[in-house]
Nucleic acid binder design. Structure first.
Length: 273
DNA sequence: ATATGAGCCTGTATGC
DNA sequence: TGCATACAGGCTCATA
């Protein structure tokens, strides 16, 4: 489900409500998600003040006063929501945190591609972030950087956009949306992308992601923020999930294609190969 | 090194 | 109705 705007939205919805609280109890409903090392998690972070809630790539991170952090990835179908004290566990609730104010923080993930774990804050970098590319809003994301990454790559730009070793946070929805805004055909190979197209692409990624964050993310099916609210960028999608409909720019028919098994949407009139 | 494909899971929608 | 297939916001690993 969640790409950068959804995780950012989740962060925004949780931070003011979590900072200053602590976790009184952890209930595990299942031992194995993508990483099956839960038991330590409880002892690491119990009764420690929450200092910060932040995002890196598509990871949500909660920092505790003892220099441990909870790191959460929502995979495709994950939800991480605040619930009242009276909340009763539902299907696919995997971990339930009881907070110091009585409310509950619930990790639910139908497909179980997500993960949740705790580590020393200082070890997150080498454990999870070492091989990640740049944040889309980083000043380091420049024409030179991206040009260097695309040089010699005989891979469709759509796949390269989704490559976390180059840029993080852009998933299947926002890859199609960014390419449409930049007027670049998704099949165009990295090696064939011009400098002006790269500049346009960087700008488009930032515009699309910013608007999506403002709208609270995109909800196709599963996504809700920490307050159980869906995202409204769905109504602003220009190509994604609009196969067969008219392009909002030029009225051509939106094409649905496939890259590495993932659906891609584009306008073959606006986006020249 | 780079490129492709399978696999991890469950739920839902579609077609026969 | 039943059953089989395809597909869904991600990521990692094994194979060419």
């Amino acid at each position: 489900m969640p790409e950068l705007p959804e995780v950012e939205t989740l962060k925004n919805s949780l931070e003011s409500k979590l900072i200053g609280l602590s976790i009184k109890n952890v209930e595990f409903k299942r031992e194995n998600l993508r990483y099956k090392l839960f038991p330590d998690l409880a002892t690491d972070i119990l009764n420690m003040n929450i200092l910060d809630v932040r995002r890196r790539a598509k990871y949500l991170i909660i920092d505790f006063a003892n220099n441990y952090s909870l790191i959460v990835h929502l995979g495709m179908s994950g939800r991480f929501t605040l619930q009242p004290a009276s909340y009763e566990a539902k299907k696919h609730d995997h971990v339930i945190f009881e907070l110091s104010n009585g409310s509950k923080l619930v990790f639910n993930d139908t497909r179980r591609f997500g993960m949740i774990y705790s580590f020393k804050t200082s070890s997150l970098e080498e454990k999870f972030f070492n091989n990640l590319g740049l944040e889309p809003f980083s000043e380091l994301l420049t024409l030179e950087y991206l040009k260097n990454k695309l040089t010699g790559r005989r891979v469709p730009i759509k796949n390269l956009l989704m490559d976390n070793k180059i840029i993080v946070g852009v998933g299947n929805i926002y890859a199609s949306e960014s390419l449409h805004l930049a007027k670049i055909h998704p099949d165009k190979l990295g090696i064939d992308i011009s400098s002006s197209e790269i500049e346009s692409l960087i700008n488009s990624i930032r515009v699309v992601l910013s608007k999506a964050i403002t709208a609270g993310g995109t909800t196709l099916k599963d996504f809700v923020n920490g307050d159980n609210k869906p995202g409204y960028f769905t109504q602003q999608l220009t190509v994604y999930a609009r196969g067969g409909q008219e392009c909002l720019n030029c009225s051509s028919v939106i094409i649905k294609a496939k890259h590495s098994g993932r659906a891609t949407f584009y306008c073959k009139n606006c986006q020249k190969a």
